[in-house]
Amino acid sequence: MTKSAEKSKRRGDVTSYCDWMSQLPPELHNIPLFNLAIPGSHDSMSYDLDINSAIIEPDNLKRLSKIYCARKIVRKWAITQEETITKQLDAGVRYFDLRIARKRNDTNPTRLYFYHGLYTLTDVETVLNIINDWAERHPKEILILALSHFKGFDKKIEEHLHIHLINFIKTLFRAKLFHKMDIPTLKRCWDQGRNVIVSYDYPANQHPEIWSKITYYYGKSMDPTEVKSELRRALETRRPLPCFFVCGLNLTLPDDARTLRYILRLCDNLVNVIGRSLPKLLQWVEEQAEKTPMNIVASDLVTRDGFVSTVVKLNISKRV
């Protein structure tokens, strides 16, 4: 080990964000993961949206699904991540916002996709296999997978689809799944050889390996000032303890006709808007963390602007 590496280790600095959890100082190994600052990605699979997919949101554009330029517009305002799930993992992201949907009239009755405006090209089982392989190679990095929304789960097949997906998750990750009865710490996860936590936004109480929905706070606005104001209010008045919670830095398009003001900008897209706001939001995170604890901090464009390093470095202030 070089002198600079030894000095960094003594200070508790992280030198590789691909394995940042294993590099945290020993005094952080026994505190609940609820009390660590963990970088996460919002709409984690939106880099994979299929231009040939039907439009499934916003509602006022669904009828235009057959028009290519309409799908193209939706796609450029629905992409919130630029990099693959593997590159997000390698960059240090440890929480993933995975929104599930079933394609109408799919010939495979249990095949599921992700979505954000459009369906993804890649199906759910393929992506979960990729995540499982990564978790196998990085046993000291704890991954939190939040599955939610379940669009297109018609009532007649809803229960069957949930049973199929939960059983697939349990069979795939097996002993990697950390049970919800225990309070997760780095050391406890490492000692048990369990490094995957699955949160599922649908009742699954009979499965000890499946966690319930994780609270996600967000600003529901395209204005970063409004986002910061709403998040500050949530962190200071509504933050649940002790459990996981997400502070979402993501910008959100209006869910009514006002969305047209944005998506009809021919020379702009969501990635550009996010890129302009993210540095301000990250500065706010550093300032707010001095006043209120942060847990999972989720963002768009997670491989840009030092997002991961900003969040991970918040943990150094937790040293006792």
Rank of each mutant, 00 (worst) to 15 (best):
A289W: 07
P25C: 07
N129P: 01
S277D: 06
K318T: 04
P208Q: 11
C189P: 02
I51G: 04
D106C: 11
K62E: 10
V311E: 05
R102E: 06
I197E: 06
E286M: 07
S221H: 04
N132M: 04
F34A: 05
Q283F: 08
S299K: 00
Y262M: 10
K291W: 05
A146N: 13
R71Q: 12
L301H: 01
C243L: 08
Y68L: 13
F153V: 03
E6Q: 11
E82W: 01
C267L: 08
N195T: 04
V127N: 03
N272L: 13
R102F: 05
E209R: 01
A37W: 04
A91K: 13
R75I: 04
K72T: 08
P26G: 06
P26Q: 09
F150Y: 14
A175W: 10
R319F: 03
P279F: 11
K9H: 12
A234Q: 13
K180R: 15
L266M: 09
A101H: 01
R71D: 04
D90G: 01
G12M: 07
K72G: 08
K66T: 10
N30Y: 12
Q283T: 14
S309V: 04
G193Q: 14
R261V: 10
L33N: 03
K7Q: 14
T215D: 10
W77D: 00
W134R: 09
P139C: 12
A146L: 05
K9D: 09
Y216R: 05
H149Y: 09
F245Q: 02
L314Q: 05
K140M: 15
R63D: 10
